[in-house]
Amino acid sequence: MSDQDSIPHPEPSTPENPPGEGRSLADPYIEDYLDRVYAPLVGVIPYTRRRDLIDEMRSHLYELVQTRREEGAEEEEALREAFRQFGPPRRIARAWIEAESIPWTRRQGWLASLLTFGGAALVAFLMVASPYSGGEDWFQRRNLGYADIWAGLVLPLFAAILLGYHARARVYLTSFFVLSAMILVASLLYLADLPSGASYGGFSSIYEFFAVVLGLYWILLAFIGIGIGTAFRRLVRWARLTPHLSLPYRFTPE
């Protein structure tokens, strides 16, 4: 590839030292590796800073390779070890994207979570506490609209899928559990006041049973919805224009 005894040291591009002029030949494998870190950052980090941080990483990589060479490793082995020690390029790119965008993503996620689950929780609670249901059997109610079913049962599923697609599910799963717990407690407290009807498996009314089922349904919903959303996001990423960047990085010297 290059001289046996020396690794080429390109000069990093600083404002005083722009690339292209008088730069020695860079190691193609290191440049390829850096390209894979660089590519996902286009549009996320502005050009000057992107170039700067790539220069920094290049410097680090060269030092890693040099240390290995001084310890007696062959060039290929030194490169492989350096890449392994530095980390997979995708993970580094992702770490950079997170460092850039975390506050907004979290805020966006909390807002989305609040609006969707909060809204659906409110509607479901109203369903249970509706003035129609006082003392009447739930199955006898003819005026239960499709809107109630849609809002209380189906919409939260869509909300969970959206959250799973857009964001890291763990945080929003927490908020979901909080809201589910709240609606469960609120429903049970409210229903404690209703006149007791026929017994339904230990619950004093069908509405109490319904409130518990709803809470459990929502917890199940979170897992299903967020799972679907995450799977969908992976599918979309896999199908994008740069499929080779989605594959794990393998150092393959030619």
Binding site: V37, L53, E56, M57, S59, H60, E63, L64, Q85, F86, G87, P88, P89, R91, I92, A95, W96, E98, A99
Partner: peptide, 29 residues
């Protein structure tokens, strides 16, 4: 500089703590 920070963490922890060195730079930023 970044490379030396990685080496120093490695040295001080007596090689007990290893991590992917590339992730230092976003943390530094």
């Amino acid at each position: 500089h970044g490379y030396a920070i990685a080496r120093e963490i490695e040295r001080r922890s007596d090689n007990a703590l290893t991590f992917k060195e590339g992730t230092l730079y976003p943390a530094l930023h």
